[in-house]
Design a protein around this nucleic acid. Sequence first.
DNA 1: GGTGTAACTTCCCGATGGGAAGTAGGCACC
DNA 2: GGTGCCTACTTCCCATCGGGAAGTTACACC
Lengths: 127, 127
Amino acid sequence: MYDAFLAVCPSRQLLERISGKWVVLILSALGSGPDCTGDPRPMRYSELSRLLSGVSQKMLTQTLRALERDGLVSRTVTPTVPVTVTYELTDLGLSLHRLMRDVKAWAETNMDDVAASRVTYDEAGAR
Amino acid sequence: MYDAFLAVCPSRQLLERISGKWVVLILSALGSGPDCTGDPRPMRYSELSRLLSGVSQKMLTQTLRALERDGLVSRTVTPTVPVTVTYELTDLGLSLHRLMRDVKAWAETNMDDVAASRVTYDEAGAR
DNA sequence: GGTGTAACTTCCCGATGGGAAGTAGGCACC
DNA sequence: GGTGCCTACTTCCCATCGGGAAGTTACACC
């Protein structure tokens, strides 16, 4: 039905949306604790901001809004003082979380192989 | 050992590299035919260019080079005329291919749910 | 010598992401 | 009662990145 290989297919736009470092990291984070081993749980904006080191406030807000619009996370405002905003995976988001966590884990487990390959490649190019 | 949540961790840079629509599409394509159901097989530059509609030559070349440097694909030049260049998944690339194919499939199978969520979100915002 | 093709490569420009500073709004402190 | 602080944004500016199109190389065929 849908085919992301086609530029005009809506699934291509969706793929562009969900492929991106911040989406991978946010969905990985929301599904578990900092070590990414726990169960899915809601997290506060400030908690995400701290966990995803290097993320700008702008990108965090922007990415979370997009994920909310796409029905992957839900946003809850609690009128404490100051206000508390929590983000939680929806069922749909949970299904993608499992993939994203695997992608993040792949990067971490295969880092050494990739680094070795880069050294070999760069040495060959210097010849 | 590695933790992609940390901005300074090498695995973060690797995650940035492999998260991106063209990487997902190229690795999905190389692992199978146009319908993404076959076995991994080598593909020519021009074949990839045709399959991934909308990709610029610049981005295709650039992404393939990066994947080659990282040891995910191998590049073979056959001195026909004009030259034939084929790209093939390495074992390392094959392991990532399985994840990428799932991500692409996720986008295609969940497109309807996401589209529905967007409509709901936009309507609520218009109020 | 002109033409054609595959696989790039280069140049230009508009879009996108990061950094930093500004905003809202409610309470707490002096 | 005015100043300050806190969270969660929002805005502005600029550097980088991606897309589009044209140029390049190498050789074979006409």
